[in-house]
Amino acid sequence: MKEFKSIVNESGKGKFYLFTELCKGCGLCIEKCPKHDIGWTDRLGIYGAPTVESGRGEEGCIACKTCQNICPECAILIEKIQ
């Protein structure tokens, strides 16, 4: 089974795992986030486009998993912090 490496950062109620080998930098998650918590980073994804991370909004992540559901590549995984 192929394994993918991820970069994790925490924001609010959610841990945000980003798989750089999968993210193509389309930005659909940035527009769909209800708390405007996702933004661009300097790290590059598979097609040489910038990848995303959470922690840009004032309220932080609410772990609604909208970005995880909307990502066409399954490049985002949200883990709720208990």
């Binding site: 394994e3 993918f4 490496k5 991820s6 970069i7 994790v8 795992y17 798989f19 999968l22 995880q68 399954c74 490049a75 985002i76 995984l77």
Partner: peptide, 8 residues
Amino acid sequence: ELTNVAPA
């Protein structure tokens, strides 16, 4: 960097 988490 993590490798033990699988994408959804």
